[in-house]
Design a binder for these strands. Structure first.
Lengths: 196, 196
DNA sequence: CCCATTCTTGACTCATCGTTCCAGAACCTG
DNA sequence: CAGGTTCTGGAACGATGAGTCAAGAATGGG
């Protein structure tokens, strides 16, 4: 009934997501998005209406992907402590700066970046970020509650409080990762885990 | 010998600092800076050369002020645990969102905001941020080492590692503060302090 | 009290911003 | 294979970005 799209919307969203992830929202121009997605301006605006909406869709996609992956990681085999250590060490690896001077450095977490850049300035995006944060907190809470049932962790502790504590450490790593080296970050992971 | 400046550079820097703090670097326009400082465009550029340099000077001023205040807080009376609790609870208060819908929400920490927005894209600012982070870590390390000498904390622990852990929690609060409420943040502070 | 110097004001430059528009191409249904 | 519809590529739009500049005003040393 009409001409079909020539692009895969998910690929385009991935490309846009990477552009926003590397530069941030404000510093990513429509031209950058045209270049990185390969679409023409018309197609891009026809499909996504505006830079703002494109960012929202990219952030949603990021949130789905990430939280799903991290939920799977937490539900994997081994003790919950081991699972949480792996979760945090994945962040450490992602944030570790290399010695290559051409390396643009770690990109952090798109949701954290969006929170810092846009929370308070953009209610919609703030709400999206909150949903992502809450979903991650819930995944951690469930894992910790499981550890309590299994006798791995003191059942007297508040699993929700512990979950927020771990999440807080994780987001701290996203910030300190901008300047700290891998050893320092790994030490923080050790100290964080000593609470559990 | 020449016409004297009609403005106080420190006041102007404070005004610019607040503008950048509220909106971020990229989203703060030269016009915003003209409006918030009250200077004419010419005077602003004559005194600070460029938006980038103005940001650097504002960030430097922020770093001096903040680290000095936090060093003083850590060196104050009482146990080091109490001092660190007060430091973290100050952050919690700063980041606590009110129920007022007109409240633009917490602004976070300018150094953390700069790290997230600009690290990897701007080597000079990344270096400045690193200096601020390291100075805060050192202040914490000194306080923790003092607590060890005083028998308040197990002298077997690595004070540098503990300092980075506390700093990491603090920067995590700057992120989670964008969406979490005061109770959640206060709980994170409690859990963080349970390590010491 | 004049002159070299620096500061102030705001109009101006020109590049780039996000977005719109349009002419042609591609498709599906009938 | 005609007609209705949507997609494509890129030119064009008005607005705004960062930064410049020129003309006048304020200063203090000679």
């Amino acid at each position: 009934m009409a001409r079909p799209k020539e692009f895969d919307p998910d690929h385009v969203l991935d490309a846009a997501m990477n552009a926003f992830w590397s530069r941030g929202y404000a510093a990513t121009s429509a031209q950058n998005l045209v270049d990185s997605t390969g679409l023409g301006r018309g197609s891009l605006y026809n499909a996504f209406s505006s830079k703002h909406r494109l960012f929202q869709e990219a952030l949603t996609r990021y949130g789905e992907e990430r939280t799903a992956r991290q939920e799977a990681l937490l539900e994997g085999p081994g003790t919950v402590r081991e699972r949480i250590r792996e979760l945090l060490m994945t962040v450490v690896e992602e944030e570790s700066r290399t010695d290559d001077p051409d390396d643009p450095g770690p990109r952090g977490c798109l949701a954290v970046n969006a929170a810092v850049e846009l929370a308070g300035l953009d209610a919609e995006i703030t709400a999206q970020v909150r949903r992502i944060f809450e979903r991650m907190a819930e995944a951690l809470r469930a894992a910790l509650a499981r550890a309590q049932r299994d006798g791995e962790i003191d059942p007297g502790r508040d699993p929700q409080a512990l979950a927020l504590f771990v999440l807080n450490s994780m987001y701290g790593l996203r910030v300190l990762g901008k300047t700290a080296d891998r050893r320092a970050l790994a030490g923080i992971v050790d100290t964080t885990l000593s609470v559990l």
